[in-house]
């Protein structure tokens, strides 16, 4: 979807900026908001680039760096921590050979940490794009990653 259509969908109003930014990020195959897109958005919405950057940079959910197709967010809140989130994180990191904030060289995964996902009952939990996975074990995590790889043919 091109930016003009996204702005049109929500309405060209300042109060819709965050929704618009989310959709621009989601629409990008690399899961980020590019500089070109920020400039284009600024022209369309008639909001200064510095102003949009100010708003967008406040929220950690927005990325200005290209990311993988699948964003893995490992919950780092106390319940998940107690239930072994650290191990989960390490396993993923080792499996994918990337550190926090990095993206795999094939552009498939980005590994991030997140605060509470709100599913403490199923801790430890992670979220991959919009899907939440709970009751995680080392095996289960490897299985999930393998499934995605298989689906993507990699």
């Amino acid at each position: 979807m091109i930016i003009k259509d996204i702005v049109y969908k929500y309405g060209n109003k300042r109060e819709n900026l965050i929704q618009i930014l989310h959709e621009i990020q989601d629409a990008d195959p690399q899961n980020y908001i590019s500089k070109e897109n920020l400039i284009r958005l600024s022209e369309i919405m008639n909001i200064p680039v510095s102003d949009i950057t100010s708003t967008a940079s406040f929220y950690t959910m927005f990325s200005f760096q290209p990311r993988g197709k699948y964003i893995i967010r490992v919950c780092g809140s106390p319940p998940c921590h107690i239930m072994g989130a650290e191990t989960i994180f390490e396993v993923i990191s080792k499996e994918l050979k990337i550190a926090k904030g990095e993206t795999t060289s094939d552009g498939l995964f980005t590994l991030e940490e997140t605060s509470c996902l709100g599913v403490c009952a199923v801790a430890p939990a992670i979220m991959i794009n919009d899907t939440v996975y709970g009751y995680l074990t080392v095996e289960r995590v490897k299985e999930i990653l393998a499934q995605i790889r298989k689906k993507e043919g990699k």
Partner: peptide
């Protein structure tokens, strides 16, 4: 409108443009 406040918390700083 060249500059604004960017980022948050201890990372807050004045940003110019992008």
């Amino acid at each position: 409108h060249a500059i604004n406040t960017g980022y948050r918390s201890s990372k807050s700083k004045i940003i110019a443009g992008l």
